[in-house]
């Protein structure tokens, strides 16, 4: 049995575990932001489409 094995395992385990969680959370946050941006862009473009005919009507009047 290697002396101090538990310390080496703890150090490497904490390092790998922390970055695994950090990368997972960052990727999830990016995915969520992506989905929300797509939804909001759709909503913005839809509201613009709706507002254009109204403006045209106002101009024709």
């Amino acid at each position: 049995m290697l002396i101090g094995l538990e310390y080496v395992v703890a150090a490497y385990g904490i390092w790998v575990g922390t970055f695994a969680i950090y990368i997972f959370l960052t990727k999830r946050s990016m995915k969520n932001a992506d989905q929300t941006v797509t939804l909001l862009e759709q909503r913005v473009s839809e509201s613009r489409k709706k507002s254009i005919p109204t403006e045209n009507n106002e101009n024709s009047n």
């Binding site: 950090y22 960052t26 990016m30 909001l40 913005v44």
Partner: peptide, 23 residues
């Protein structure tokens, strides 16, 4: 790698905030 990954997330959040402000 982590810097670029985090930067991409940051840019998306910035776009999201701009869209929310626009709405």
């Amino acid at each position: 790698y982590l810097l670029l990954l985090r930067l991409q997330t940051e840019k998306r959040r910035e776009t999201l905030n701009q869209l929310l402000a626009e709405i």
